[in-house]
Design a protein around this nucleic acid. Structure first.
Length: 271
DNA sequence: ACTGGCTCCTGAGGGC
DNA sequence: TGCCCTCAGGAGCCAG
């Protein structure tokens, strides 16, 4: 379940393996992702070099001279670098073969991911243009959240998970950040005060920083990256811990559904 | 303008 | 052992 830390870890791992490599050919084994993989990649990419691998929100941006390959990992998407003659795996969708004999393969069992092409500024792409600030950018702060949330009745957890508000906070880290900040996930966003948002901003950054650090140690080797599920599991305080006793106040952790999503919190710590 | 609900998909895990 | 059911989740989309 890639949230921002996992995507950033993927970016850091894959960039040194593909940067400056020239594409020899593109093979689309199965174009069926969230949107069909654009067939034009087959004629556009060969001959071009990967200049850099960037990230905006949970989108990876593979920059080429003539445009940008935009990759979203969805729920189960993985990128791995293999020798180009390595055996294919089930759910390999797209293969980008480089002139040095390696290949980057996109594998996605649930097909929630996507692969898009942007000939112009990728940040202006339809999928990226309306996104909120990055959680580590100065634009993500208590004043911003306070202003944006006035009059909003939506619970603070789905509010925090709304990519138009801030990007990269998925279901797991939303629960964790709210626990750290001592905010009940059900509290209407419009009722949250500025000082409390201050704590939330800090918590979001702390939890993402810790997760990126943990991801960095787990995803070191991208030639063999099928990911290790639950890599941050041991550091989670509430997520997936329904019935466990809170590490702070020993109240049993509760699980509810909020905006169709499993939500975990400590009724003792979070008001 | 908001809000909540539905949807895509496959694999894991629980119950019997 | 095996089958069936439920659940998981990012984010676009739509109806009210």
């Amino acid at each position: 379940m890639p949230e921002l830390p996992e995507v950033e870890t993927t970016r850091r791992g894959i960039e040194p393996l593909v940067v400056n490599k020239e594409v020899a050919r593109v093979v689309i084994h199965n174009a069926a992702l969230r949107w069909p993989v654009p067939g034009e990649l087959i004629r556009l990419l060969p001959g071009q070099q990967v200049r850099s691998v960037g990230r905006r929100s949970k989108y990876l941006l593979f920059s080429f001279a003539q445009g940008t390959l935009i990759v979203h990992l969805g729920m189960t998407g993985h990128l791995r670098l293999t020798p180009c003659d390595a055996e294919r795996r089930k759910h390999d969708h797209v293969e980008i073969v480089f002139t040095d004999g390696t290949a980057m393969r996109y594998n996605d069992s649930r097909r929630f991911g996507s692969m898009l092409w942007s000939a112009a500024d990728p940040l202006q792409h339809q999928r990226l243009v309306g996104l909120g600030p990055e959680p580590f950018s100065p634009g993500f702060n208590a004043t911003y959240l306070h202003r944006l949330s006035r009059g909003r009745k939506v619970a603070v957890k789905p509010f925090l998970m709304d990519a138009r508000v801030v990007v990269g906070v998925g279901n797991i880290y939303a629960s964790e950040a709210l626990f750290r900040a001592g905010i009940a996930p059900t509290c209407p966003a419009g009722k949250v005060g500025k000082a409390v948002f201050e704590r939330l901003v800090k918590s979001v950054r702390e939890i993402l920083t810790a997760a990126i650090a943990a991801g960095g140690t787990t995803f070191r080797d991208f030639s063999d990256s099928q990911g290790r599920p639950g890599y941050f599991r041991q550091e989670l305080c509430v997520y997936g811990r329904n019935g466990d006793l809170c590490t702070v106040c020993s109240t049993p952790i509760k699980q509810i559904r909020l905006g169709q999503r499993s939500t975990f919190f400590c009724p003792g710590c979070q008001k």
